[in-house]
Amino acid sequence: MTETLDTPLDHAPEAGAGLQRRTVTLRIRRFNPEAGDTEPSWHDYPVEVLPTDRILDALNKIKWEQDGTLTYRRSCAHGICGSDAMRINGRNRLACKTLIKDLNMDAAITVEAIKGLPLEKDLIVDMEPFFQAYRDINPFLITESHEPTRERLQSQHDRDRFDDTTKCILCAACTTACPVFWTDGQYFGPAAIVGAHRFIFDSRDEGASQRLDILNDREGVWRCRTTFNCTEACPRGIQITQAIQEVKRALISRRV
């Protein structure tokens, strides 16, 4: 595994000083209840990387070469599956989209699990409350009128209305960056509102008022304090705060 990953890098043409191998320190917040840990604790791992490697590569190197018990989620390694959101140097990011050279390589790079969801082990949290909030907004097409014989047509203009919120990969970086969610896990959280926005403003969907009712809840959009943490955290660059404000506006005018 390491061989195949390293081979092309070793033969990569040296493109100036930027591509020198060097040692960086990853300071990882470890927690293993099975080994009797009651509190998470920080551990330093020196690891040799190329500056153009990603945090995920460094984590893999640690897991494969230093400590096989290190636990984290990852799947696609290309910013699509949304499984490896973590708090890197205090900010929520995808480990597979964060280049080491973009962080301060001279200091220890802190890596910890996302906050606000129950910690299970090392970098893994229980995502179930997060997904439940998403399910609660009915993230599927709802129609009442007759089904067309062929596909449901939509103009480019109508599609553009909600294009931004279709990009969500449910990584939870936004919801677990939200200070309201940290203190009140009942809040739907930005990701669920993004998911609702994607259908509320879809011209083919007829469940808008139902979803608006759900988000009008005490724990719905009105809990948003426009902190913008979600927008800053989103690895897909979704304008989340704006989407939330659009839902608020739709609730006031009851028009979408």
């Binding site: 229980d126 409350p129 439940q132 399910r135 009942q186 759900i214 809840d217 005490r218 719905g220 009105w222």
Partner: peptide, 22 residues
């Protein structure tokens, strides 16, 4: 649907149906 353990389950209906927060 029911929410998993750590946080108490979300409840709709009983208290939710009001425009107070709006």
């Amino acid at each position: 649907t029911e929410i998993g353990a750590p946080r108490s389950p979300r409840t709709f209906g009983s208290s939710g149906r009001s425009n107070f927060e709006l």
